[in-house]
Nucleic acid binder design. Structure first.
Length: 321
DNA sequence: AACCTCTGCAACCGCGAGGTG
DNA sequence: ACACCTCGCGGTTGCAGAGGT
Protein backbone atom coordinates (compact mmCIF):
# COMPACT_ATOMS: atom_id res chain seq x y z
CA UNK A 1 0.00 0.00 0.00
CA UNK A 2 2.37 2.62 1.20
CA UNK A 3 5.37 3.26 -0.95
CA UNK A 4 8.54 2.72 0.97
CA UNK A 5 9.85 6.08 1.93
CA UNK A 6 13.56 6.25 2.39
CA UNK A 7 13.04 9.24 4.66
CA UNK A 8 10.72 7.44 6.95
CA UNK A 9 7.23 8.25 7.93
CA UNK A 10 7.40 11.98 8.05
CA UNK A 11 10.91 12.92 7.08
CA UNK A 12 11.87 14.52 10.34
CA UNK A 13 11.48 11.28 12.19
CA UNK A 14 13.37 9.18 9.68
CA UNK A 15 16.49 9.25 11.77
CA UNK A 16 16.05 10.08 15.39
CA UNK A 17 18.36 12.84 16.40
CA UNK A 18 19.37 11.20 19.64
CA UNK A 19 20.14 7.67 18.53
CA UNK A 20 20.57 8.01 14.77
CA UNK A 21 18.17 5.17 14.36
CA UNK A 22 15.85 5.12 11.42
CA UNK A 23 12.11 5.03 11.89
CA UNK A 24 9.18 4.75 9.56
CA UNK A 25 8.73 2.61 6.52
CA UNK A 26 11.26 0.01 5.61
CA UNK A 27 13.08 0.29 2.29
CA UNK A 28 13.61 -2.79 0.09
CA UNK A 29 17.31 -2.59 0.89
CA UNK A 30 16.64 -2.76 4.61
CA UNK A 31 14.28 -5.65 4.08
CA UNK A 32 16.92 -7.49 2.12
CA UNK A 33 19.53 -6.92 4.80
CA UNK A 34 17.27 -8.16 7.53
CA UNK A 35 16.02 -11.09 5.51
CA UNK A 36 19.51 -12.22 4.59
CA UNK A 37 20.70 -11.86 8.15
CA UNK A 38 17.82 -13.83 9.59
CA UNK A 39 18.16 -16.61 7.04
CA UNK A 40 21.86 -16.93 7.74
CA UNK A 41 21.89 -16.49 11.49
CA UNK A 42 18.41 -17.15 12.73
CA UNK A 43 16.73 -15.26 15.48
CA UNK A 44 18.83 -14.07 18.34
CA UNK A 45 18.95 -10.94 20.41
CA UNK A 46 17.13 -8.34 18.37
CA UNK A 47 19.52 -5.58 19.33
CA UNK A 48 22.32 -7.70 17.91
CA UNK A 49 20.30 -8.41 14.81
CA UNK A 50 19.88 -4.71 14.18
CA UNK A 51 23.55 -4.04 14.76
CA UNK A 52 25.00 -7.02 12.95
CA UNK A 53 22.73 -6.79 9.95
CA UNK A 54 23.98 -3.28 9.36
CA UNK A 55 20.63 -1.70 9.96
CA UNK A 56 20.14 1.69 11.54
CA UNK A 57 17.08 0.40 13.29
CA UNK A 58 16.28 -0.50 16.83
CA UNK A 59 15.89 -4.16 17.65
CA UNK A 60 12.25 -3.66 18.30
CA UNK A 61 11.68 -2.34 14.82
CA UNK A 62 13.58 -5.27 13.31
CA UNK A 63 11.57 -7.73 15.30
CA UNK A 64 8.32 -6.16 14.18
CA UNK A 65 9.37 -6.08 10.54
CA UNK A 66 10.41 -9.69 10.61
CA UNK A 67 7.35 -10.95 12.40
CA UNK A 68 4.81 -8.95 10.48
CA UNK A 69 6.28 -8.88 7.02
CA UNK A 70 9.46 -10.79 6.23
CA UNK A 71 8.94 -14.11 7.96
CA UNK A 72 8.91 -16.73 5.21
CA UNK A 73 5.94 -18.63 6.59
CA UNK A 74 3.62 -15.69 6.32
CA UNK A 75 0.48 -16.10 4.34
CA UNK A 76 -0.38 -12.91 2.51
CA UNK A 77 -3.61 -11.87 0.95
CA UNK A 78 -7.20 -11.67 1.98
CA UNK A 79 -8.61 -13.74 4.77
CA UNK A 80 -10.63 -16.69 3.62
CA UNK A 81 -14.18 -17.13 4.89
CA UNK A 82 -12.96 -20.03 6.98
CA UNK A 83 -10.31 -17.83 8.55
CA UNK A 84 -12.90 -15.16 9.22
CA UNK A 85 -15.06 -17.65 10.99
CA UNK A 86 -12.16 -18.92 12.99
CA UNK A 87 -11.14 -15.42 14.01
CA UNK A 88 -14.63 -14.55 15.08
CA UNK A 89 -14.91 -17.75 16.98
CA UNK A 90 -11.56 -17.42 18.68
CA UNK A 91 -12.16 -13.78 19.49
CA UNK A 92 -15.37 -14.74 21.18
CA UNK A 93 -13.35 -17.07 23.35
CA UNK A 94 -10.20 -15.05 23.89
CA UNK A 95 -11.14 -11.43 23.49
CA UNK A 96 -8.41 -9.17 22.17
CA UNK A 97 -5.65 -11.67 22.71
CA UNK A 98 -4.43 -11.29 19.19
CA UNK A 99 -1.24 -13.22 19.64
CA UNK A 100 -3.13 -16.24 20.88
CA UNK A 101 -5.61 -15.97 18.06
CA UNK A 102 -2.75 -15.64 15.60
CA UNK A 103 -1.16 -18.75 17.06
CA UNK A 104 -4.18 -20.68 15.82
CA UNK A 105 -4.03 -19.19 12.35
CA UNK A 106 -0.86 -20.36 10.66
CA UNK A 107 0.77 -17.75 8.51
CA UNK A 108 -1.17 -14.86 10.00
CA UNK A 109 0.22 -12.30 12.39
CA UNK A 110 -1.40 -10.79 15.41
CA UNK A 111 -1.13 -7.38 13.81
CA UNK A 112 -2.81 -8.59 10.65
CA UNK A 113 -5.65 -10.18 12.57
CA UNK A 114 -6.02 -7.14 14.79
CA UNK A 115 -6.23 -4.87 11.77
CA UNK A 116 -8.67 -7.18 10.07
CA UNK A 117 -10.81 -7.28 13.15
CA UNK A 118 -10.81 -3.54 13.70
CA UNK A 119 -11.36 -2.61 10.08
CA UNK A 120 -13.68 -5.29 8.81
CA UNK A 121 -15.29 -7.58 11.31
CA UNK A 122 -15.98 -4.99 13.96
CA UNK A 123 -17.69 -2.83 11.40
CA UNK A 124 -19.93 -5.62 10.21
CA UNK A 125 -20.84 -6.54 13.72
CA UNK A 126 -21.62 -2.95 14.48
CA UNK A 127 -23.98 -2.86 11.54
CA UNK A 128 -25.64 -5.98 12.77
CA UNK A 129 -25.81 -4.55 16.25
CA UNK A 130 -27.42 -1.32 15.14
CA UNK A 131 -29.94 -3.08 12.95
CA UNK A 132 -30.99 -5.27 15.82
CA UNK A 133 -31.13 -2.43 18.31
CA UNK A 134 -34.72 -3.17 19.08
CA UNK A 135 -33.55 -6.09 21.09
CA UNK A 136 -34.04 -5.51 24.82
CA UNK A 137 -30.46 -6.51 25.59
CA UNK A 138 -28.89 -4.04 23.23
CA UNK A 139 -26.52 -1.47 24.64
CA UNK A 140 -23.78 0.70 23.21
CA UNK A 141 -21.25 -1.04 25.33
CA UNK A 142 -21.91 -4.31 23.60
CA UNK A 143 -19.18 -3.58 21.13
CA UNK A 144 -16.54 -2.82 23.66
CA UNK A 145 -13.71 -5.27 23.58
CA UNK A 146 -12.79 -6.91 26.82
CA UNK A 147 -9.13 -7.02 27.67
CA UNK A 148 -9.26 -9.80 30.16
CA UNK A 149 -9.17 -13.19 28.65
CA UNK A 150 -11.49 -16.06 28.86
CA UNK A 151 -14.19 -14.62 31.02
CA UNK A 152 -14.06 -11.20 29.52
CA UNK A 153 -13.73 -12.71 26.11
CA UNK A 154 -17.34 -13.59 26.27
CA UNK A 155 -19.22 -10.41 25.85
CA UNK A 156 -22.87 -9.77 26.23
CA UNK A 157 -25.13 -12.58 25.21
CA UNK A 158 -26.25 -10.50 22.32
CA UNK A 159 -22.87 -10.08 20.79
CA UNK A 160 -21.83 -13.57 21.63
CA UNK A 161 -24.83 -14.75 19.74
CA UNK A 162 -23.96 -12.65 16.77
CA UNK A 163 -20.47 -14.03 16.87
CA UNK A 164 -21.68 -17.55 16.86
CA UNK A 165 -20.99 -18.28 20.48
CA UNK A 166 -24.10 -19.29 22.24
CA UNK A 167 -24.23 -18.62 25.90
CA UNK A 168 -26.95 -20.11 27.89
CA UNK A 169 -29.06 -17.24 29.19
CA UNK A 170 -28.63 -18.39 32.74
CA UNK A 171 -24.97 -19.23 32.56
CA UNK A 172 -23.87 -16.43 34.83
CA UNK A 173 -23.68 -18.43 38.00
CA UNK A 174 -23.71 -22.11 37.30
CA UNK A 175 -22.26 -24.42 34.78
CA UNK A 176 -24.64 -24.66 31.87
CA UNK A 177 -24.41 -26.27 28.55
CA UNK A 178 -24.71 -24.19 25.48
CA UNK A 179 -27.91 -25.43 24.05
CA UNK A 180 -27.69 -24.08 20.55
CA UNK A 181 -25.34 -24.61 17.74
CA UNK A 182 -24.57 -22.21 14.96
CA UNK A 183 -23.95 -23.49 11.54
CA UNK A 184 -21.03 -21.34 10.38
CA UNK A 185 -22.07 -21.80 6.82
CA UNK A 186 -24.69 -19.29 7.79
CA UNK A 187 -22.13 -16.98 9.25
CA UNK A 188 -21.47 -15.63 5.79
CA UNK A 189 -25.08 -14.59 5.64
CA UNK A 190 -24.95 -13.20 9.13
CA UNK A 191 -21.94 -11.09 8.33
CA UNK A 192 -23.21 -9.97 4.97
CA UNK A 193 -26.82 -9.33 5.59
CA UNK A 194 -28.62 -6.84 7.72
CA UNK A 195 -30.71 -9.00 9.94
CA UNK A 196 -33.66 -7.75 11.86
CA UNK A 197 -35.85 -8.93 14.63
CA UNK A 198 -35.00 -10.65 17.84
CA UNK A 199 -31.41 -11.41 18.42
CA UNK A 200 -30.63 -14.92 17.45
CA UNK A 201 -33.77 -15.44 15.50
CA UNK A 202 -32.14 -14.57 12.23
CA UNK A 203 -29.62 -17.35 12.54
CA UNK A 204 -30.15 -20.89 11.58
CA UNK A 205 -30.14 -21.97 15.16
CA UNK A 206 -30.32 -25.64 15.68
CA UNK A 207 -30.82 -27.67 18.81
CA UNK A 208 -27.51 -29.00 19.93
CA UNK A 209 -26.86 -32.66 20.26
CA UNK A 210 -25.66 -32.54 23.80
CA UNK A 211 -23.91 -35.85 23.49
CA UNK A 212 -21.51 -34.56 20.94
CA UNK A 213 -21.46 -30.93 21.89
CA UNK A 214 -21.47 -30.90 25.64
CA UNK A 215 -18.63 -29.60 27.76
CA UNK A 216 -15.82 -29.54 25.31
CA UNK A 217 -17.67 -28.08 22.47
CA UNK A 218 -17.20 -29.50 19.07
CA UNK A 219 -16.83 -28.57 15.49
CA UNK A 220 -17.69 -31.25 13.06
CA UNK A 221 -16.71 -31.04 9.48
CA UNK A 222 -20.15 -30.19 8.38
CA UNK A 223 -19.29 -26.91 10.01
CA UNK A 224 -21.09 -27.09 13.29
CA UNK A 225 -19.73 -24.86 16.04
CA UNK A 226 -20.63 -25.62 19.60
CA UNK A 227 -18.88 -23.70 22.29
CA UNK A 228 -18.85 -24.19 26.02
CA UNK A 229 -19.23 -21.29 28.45
CA UNK A 230 -15.65 -21.45 29.57
CA UNK A 231 -15.98 -19.35 32.66
CA UNK A 232 -18.48 -21.64 34.25
CA UNK A 233 -16.65 -24.91 34.34
CA UNK A 234 -17.40 -26.56 37.64
CA UNK A 235 -14.47 -28.71 38.59
CA UNK A 236 -16.57 -31.33 40.27
CA UNK A 237 -18.71 -31.77 37.24
CA UNK A 238 -15.72 -31.43 35.02
CA UNK A 239 -13.87 -34.07 36.97
CA UNK A 240 -16.57 -36.57 36.33
CA UNK A 241 -16.46 -35.81 32.72
CA UNK A 242 -12.71 -35.40 32.53
CA UNK A 243 -11.89 -37.79 29.74
CA UNK A 244 -14.88 -36.77 27.80
CA UNK A 245 -13.97 -33.12 28.05
CA UNK A 246 -10.41 -33.68 27.00
CA UNK A 247 -11.50 -35.72 24.05
CA UNK A 248 -13.92 -33.09 22.88
CA UNK A 249 -11.54 -30.22 23.31
CA UNK A 250 -9.03 -32.17 21.34
CA UNK A 251 -11.65 -32.36 18.65
CA UNK A 252 -12.19 -28.62 18.76
CA UNK A 253 -8.53 -27.89 18.27
CA UNK A 254 -8.02 -30.63 15.77
CA UNK A 255 -10.90 -29.53 13.62
CA UNK A 256 -9.79 -25.92 13.74
CA UNK A 257 -6.44 -27.10 12.49
CA UNK A 258 -7.99 -29.08 9.73
CA UNK A 259 -9.85 -26.02 8.57
CA UNK A 260 -6.82 -23.77 8.63
CA UNK A 261 -4.44 -26.36 7.30
CA UNK A 262 -6.65 -26.88 4.31
CA UNK A 263 -6.32 -23.21 3.47
CA UNK A 264 -2.67 -22.91 4.14
CA UNK A 265 -1.78 -25.87 1.95
CA UNK A 266 -3.10 -24.11 -1.09
CA UNK A 267 -1.33 -20.85 -0.54
CA UNK A 268 1.79 -21.11 1.47
CA UNK A 269 4.18 -22.89 -0.77
CA UNK A 270 3.85 -20.29 -3.48
CA UNK A 271 3.83 -17.53 -0.96
CA UNK A 272 7.01 -18.63 0.69
CA UNK A 273 8.79 -19.22 -2.56
CA UNK A 274 7.65 -15.93 -3.97
CA UNK A 275 8.80 -14.04 -0.95
CA UNK A 276 12.17 -15.73 -0.98
CA UNK A 277 12.56 -15.03 -4.68
CA UNK A 278 11.44 -11.47 -4.19
CA UNK A 279 14.09 -11.05 -1.58
CA UNK A 280 16.78 -12.88 -3.51
CA UNK A 281 17.10 -15.41 -0.76
CA UNK A 282 18.32 -18.82 -1.73
CA UNK A 283 18.45 -21.68 0.70
CA UNK A 284 20.35 -24.77 -0.28
CA UNK A 285 18.11 -27.75 -0.80
CA UNK A 286 15.00 -25.88 0.14
CA UNK A 287 12.02 -27.86 -0.96
CA UNK A 288 8.54 -26.93 0.16
CA UNK A 289 7.02 -30.31 -0.18
CA UNK A 290 5.62 -32.66 2.40
CA UNK A 291 7.73 -32.71 5.50
CA UNK A 292 9.73 -29.70 4.48
CA UNK A 293 6.66 -27.61 4.17
CA UNK A 294 5.43 -28.95 7.45
CA UNK A 295 8.75 -28.13 9.02
CA UNK A 296 8.71 -24.63 7.63
CA UNK A 297 5.18 -24.04 8.71
CA UNK A 298 5.54 -25.78 12.01
CA UNK A 299 3.90 -29.03 12.80
CA UNK A 300 0.28 -28.48 13.62
CA UNK A 301 -0.25 -31.70 15.33
CA UNK A 302 -2.64 -32.18 18.15
CA UNK A 303 -0.04 -33.13 20.69
CA UNK A 304 1.87 -29.94 20.18
CA UNK A 305 -1.24 -27.85 20.44
CA UNK A 306 -2.43 -29.56 23.54
CA UNK A 307 0.77 -28.52 25.26
CA UNK A 308 -0.60 -25.04 25.23
CA UNK A 309 -3.79 -25.31 27.16
CA UNK A 310 -4.04 -21.61 27.76
CA UNK A 311 -6.86 -21.56 25.27
CA UNK A 312 -8.81 -23.89 27.45
CA UNK A 313 -7.63 -23.14 30.95
CA UNK A 314 -10.27 -25.25 32.55
CA UNK A 315 -8.41 -28.29 31.28
CA UNK A 316 -5.89 -27.63 34.00
CA UNK A 317 -8.50 -28.04 36.66
CA UNK A 318 -9.77 -31.13 34.95
CA UNK A 319 -6.39 -32.81 34.75
CA UNK A 320 -5.91 -32.74 38.47
CA UNK A 321 -8.65 -35.30 38.89
C1' DA B 1 -9.89 18.02 -12.29
C1' DA B 2 -9.92 19.11 -7.58
C1' DC B 3 -11.17 18.30 -3.26
C1' DC B 4 -12.86 15.57 0.58
C1' DT B 5 -13.76 11.39 3.13
C1' DC B 6 -13.09 6.73 4.01
C1' DT B 7 -10.38 2.55 4.39
C1' DG B 8 -6.60 -0.63 5.06
C1' DC B 9 -2.59 -1.51 7.18
C1' DA B 10 2.41 -0.76 8.38
C1' DA B 11 4.66 0.93 12.00
C1' DC B 12 5.15 3.19 16.42
C1' DC B 13 4.34 3.63 21.40
C1' DG B 14 3.85 2.41 26.11
C1' DC B 15 3.51 -1.05 29.26
C1' DG B 16 4.26 -5.37 31.73
C1' DA B 17 6.74 -9.74 32.24
C1' DG B 18 10.80 -12.18 32.69
C1' DG B 19 15.77 -12.70 32.89
C1' DT B 20 20.25 -11.26 34.58
C1' DG B 21 23.85 -9.10 37.29
C1' DA C 1 15.79 -5.99 46.63
C1' DC C 2 16.95 -3.32 42.93
C1' DA C 3 18.18 -1.63 38.35
C1' DC C 4 18.65 -2.59 33.79
C1' DC C 5 17.73 -4.89 29.55
C1' DT C 6 15.09 -7.48 26.15
C1' DC C 7 11.01 -9.25 24.46
C1' DG C 8 6.23 -9.52 23.38
C1' DC C 9 1.73 -7.66 23.44
C1' DG C 10 -2.23 -4.63 22.56
C1' DG C 11 -3.64 0.01 21.44
C1' DT C 12 -3.04 3.74 18.51
C1' DT C 13 -1.38 6.67 14.83
C1' DG C 14 -0.85 8.41 10.37
C1' DC C 15 -0.12 7.76 5.56
C1' DA C 16 -1.34 6.13 0.72
C1' DG C 17 -4.71 4.96 -2.17
C1' DA C 18 -9.57 4.29 -3.34
C1' DG C 19 -13.89 6.08 -3.80
C1' DG C 20 -17.30 9.71 -3.66
C1' DT C 21 -18.91 14.45 -4.59
Amino acid sequence: MRKPDSFGRSGCTAITTASKLRKGLWSPEEDEKLMNYMVRNGQGCWSDVARNAGLQRCGKSCRLRWINYLRPDLKRGAFSPQEEELIIHLHSLLGNRWSQIAARLPGRTDNEIKNFWNSTIKKRLKNISSSSSRSPNTSDSSMEQPRDGINGGLRSNQESNMMGVYMHPSSSSTWQLPNFALNPMNLHHILDQQPSGIVGSHFDVQPCNTQSGMFGGNIDFEGQFMVPPLENINTEQSGKMGNFVEKNNANVINNMNRITNYNQCNNNKDNINNRLVENNVKIEGLCWEGDDLRMAMGEWDLEELMKDVSLFPFLDSIRQY
